[in-house]
Amino acid sequence: MNGAQERKAFVRGSRYRGTAAEIVSVAETRKGPEPGSPPQGGPRDASLKIVIVDESPIRAAILEDGLREAGFVQVERITETRNLLARIYALDPDVILIDLENPSRDELEQMFQVSRIVKRPVAMFVDQSDAASIQASVDAGVSAYIVGNLQKDRIKTILDLCISRFNAFSRLQSELDEAKGALEERKIIDRAKGVLMKAKGLTEEQAYSLLRKTAMNENKKIADIAQSVLTAAELFK
């Protein structure tokens, strides 16, 4: 179990209390707020302006959807990070969410500094007591900053949602990669079958069972054996 799952997540103003993993499934199964139930985080939080800085437009969109479903209506996305601070000051957000693959994260750190371009004090969401929160967000690949004197517990909902959406996104990503890989393997096996059928006069079924038997004997994946067949066929050309 990693920190993200282990951590007890608390969702203010909601019926849901459980681990972050449970919250993920809640976020996935629920299509928008249930009729009659207040948005997560309560009505006054709907006025929070949230900026998402993410170079992945798809992930940013997924996160924005999640925030809107949770009742946060003022959500802006920044995908172009040139002149990032100026863009952020122009939007004047209460909360900033940024992906950790983004080199521009260092620019945000400057907002903590005394400088005449800072409009108001900025504090990071995480402090000494929040090691678990930092762990969970770093695991998920996202960091959050709050602007001004916002109470920390008011953005707990947002961060939890953010973490769950980022985790869901990377799960989708790896599923997609797996699917791509499987498709690739399928193609390799088909081509190897073709080589065997031609070289040894086998039927498709016989060719496949030869590949499978060899793979079992050598304790390898069928796709690996198929790849060896293709390599060998290339050499014998």
Binding site: E101, N102, S104, D106
Partner: peptide, 10 residues
């Protein structure tokens, strides 16, 4: 890594 903030946090 891509940022000093990441290096520090990790």
């Amino acid at each position: 890594e891509v940022s000093w903030s990441n290096v520090r946090d990790k």
